[in-house]
Write a protein that binds this DNA or RNA. Structure first.
Lengths: 239, 239, 239, 239
DNA sequence: AATGAATGAGGATTCATTCAT
DNA sequence: GATGAATGAATCCTCATTCAT
């Protein structure tokens, strides 16, 4: 398409700049998906995006920032998806909450691939101020959903504050992340772990995740229940 | 002047070899703890251990193997600790299982530090055959404890197979790993997340972990219960 | 919303252009003083000056040209200052010449900071023709002062041609530059060299410079004297 | 010579290592001389030396350290040369001191090329501790020569302490450096400054340097004289 | 067994300068 | 005249691993 010396078109308008930034993110995302858990090199990202290496650094402070941004996008989309999923299912139930929490993660394996690397690899090279900003945004989005839950889950679980719901969300995230890592080992051994004798070490994410979350969210209700019914039995005493 | 330079004594007997290998592991462990989540360089390990770089590679195929081995040791010790803990508490309860699962992890933060990096960093550079061996050992140990649980938890939860217990153990591991990662962010932001407004993103591991495991293991019992009682109430219908 | 963005006003009239050019020089000077001996980047200069990077290159062919220009300004001011200083002190003496040569340099440390870098860093990237022009201007100013000296120092040192005075001026410049470099090491070691045991390596510029110049300029007189008299006369006492 | 994959012979014995280190220094010196005032790249040094890039960093902490080391060698040789020159000329005179100070610099233009860059370029990237060590060595050598001068110049200038001689040596160094820079402009304009109309800006180092030092060292004697006699004595005629 | 010198691919980032708008 | 996005050459240094001794 590009005759001559392949100088990329200038992105002058904010929209064009936004588009270019997104293009870089997109390319980085593609390359990462193909080669995870290796982050692609800055050079490769630039070449694939059809721009100069320096241009990448015009839009991102560091290579890691690209992937932190990608992770942030996933987190945002995840929580938004949960919300919209819940909105579309008026008869709220734990099952729906759980389902909404799990489905995006299954569809976008990259999300948790990045999440797995965030503490160890990605956050390594990020400016501290940016890290704080990232975490704040994170929290903000969790809180927004927390408030939503407070309003809409009041029928089945009254008296929870928004922050309590946030706690459940954060805990869900943590648990899902743990299960995901267990269920998605490094490609080099995935094949091996598929054999029945070892497969117990690589449980099915879909099932495990839903199961674990179900217990977690049920407990969110039950604990309230406990106060209401005296019939709360032996089981809690067992522990 | 110095005959033989500062050449380290040869380890001829298997015991000496074992000792040297352990020494390397020990040094690597120390260095990693001091600088996590960065793996120390092979050079630094050798220098600190007082041996030559090449010697490290006589005992380990790669740098990563050292840390995989360290991780394996932790896993072994963890499950052994659980077992001995349970043996010392004859009146088995979920509370004790949970406690035994959590305490080692709290005492040895390195365990989960390594575990967090296993899929992303450590397993990167490991020989496939060794990886398989590692996973097999892993499973073996899980199974051993599974059998133990089968025998000793039969009073409070009959009819579980050893493998079912293994599943619970593996799931516990996964959940703990997720929670640990959430609770132990990169040092550079730990300080920031300590401030109350953000602390919800960095929950207390001790509490979260126990809470989550308690639910998980209770469910291990409850689900059996379900089959017995027809009175299975509203809660399950909610979901 | 904003018509015309934040585009800097156009400098149409020569005066406006001159003003803008001077503004760039001023900003560059400030930034360099703050971070010497690092030349600030073109980007930083532009940003600090509140203009676009490209604009800088409308006024200067290269980044180095900015600093060569700054150096030239210093040289001009230096010699002018010498001249005006001498004019204000009619009873000319070596002491006054020396003093006038040293004081500007002390007041404007940037002058010799740049001078130290001229041969090695600044002239690196300058267009040859411009370099010649710069050197010519330099010489012109030296000659002007040389002529002045010829006229006004005739009382204490007759029979010197203007060019001979120029030679003394150039030599003074060289010597001052050498002493300045010795007296102003890189910030990272200045602190260290302040300790008495090493301070001999970092002599006091004020004293050294005056001392060295005094000898030089005395010799300017003495050598002529020598021919006339065997007595080592009063002139040396003048200073 | 080298068949196959050109792995350089291992330097195992200290002597071999010393030789390799010197080889790197030698190559760096050659390349610098050919391309001054540009420091050759680490890559080029390695390639020219016939070794791998990493090997260079086995012998030097940074590229700059190579050139600081080269500079230090020159300084050492310079002062040694002065000493041996003086030893060979028993009837010490200022003329001989001056000559000995200038001749090495003329023979080894690289010395002052590096010296010109030390504050601005070379010391930039040197570890602070190493910089201190370098300066200390520097001083030590100056002091050694100072003591030598104290002992051997006592005939023509008694009552100088060794440290006073050091001061003269340091000042000589500074002055020579200044004059050298004036006399050795960047290659790109040397040609231009050779034309008579500009040559006054690029004086002949040999002459200027000797002249300047002569005055300086004469003053070293004279000032003592002054105290003793009102007569401006013979010693100045020595030179 | 132990050594440690040599390797060299690997990868991130900077920044002076250009030129299309 | 002014802009500032794009360029991409330029370079440093690290470090896991090997292998001759």
């Amino acid at each position: 398409m590009n005759t001559g010396d392949c100088r990329a078109k200038r992105a002058r308008a904010p929209k064009e700049k936004e588009a270019r930034r997104n293009h870089i993110l997109h390319v980085a995302s593609q390359l990462f998906s193909a080669d995870a858990p290796q982050l692609p090199t800055a050079d490769k990202i630039a070449k694939t995006a059809g721009i100069a290496k320096g241009t990448v650094y015009l839009y991102f402070k560091s290579k890691e920032e690209i992937f932190l941004c990608l992770l942030e996008q996933h987190q945002t989309k995840w929580l938004e998806r949960v919300r919209s999923h819940l909105e579309q299912n008026p008869g709220l139930s734990i099952e729906i909450v759980v389902e909404s929490l799990c489905s995006y993660i299954e569809q976008e394996p990259q999300f948790f691939h990045l999440a797995s690397m965030s503490g160890t690899v990605i956050e390594q090279n990020i400016d501290k101020a940016d890290l704080i900003a990232y975490k704040s945004h994170c929290l903000t989005r969790f809180k927004k959903l927390g408030e939503f839950l407070q309003q809409h889950l009041s029928q089945i679980a009254e008296e929870r504050t928004a922050d309590e719901w946030v706690t459940y969300l954060v805990r869900s995230y943590a648990i899902l992340l743990g299960i995901w890592q267990q269920s998605n080992p490094h490609p080099s051994i995935r094949a091996v772990l598929l054999q029945p004798s070892l497969s117990i070490l690589m449980p099915d994410f879909s099932h495990e995740a839903r199961d674990a979350l179900r217990h977690l969210w049920q407990s969110a209700l039950e604990e309230k229940e406990k106060k209401k019914t005296t019939l709360w039995s032996l089981k809690s005493l067992l522990s």
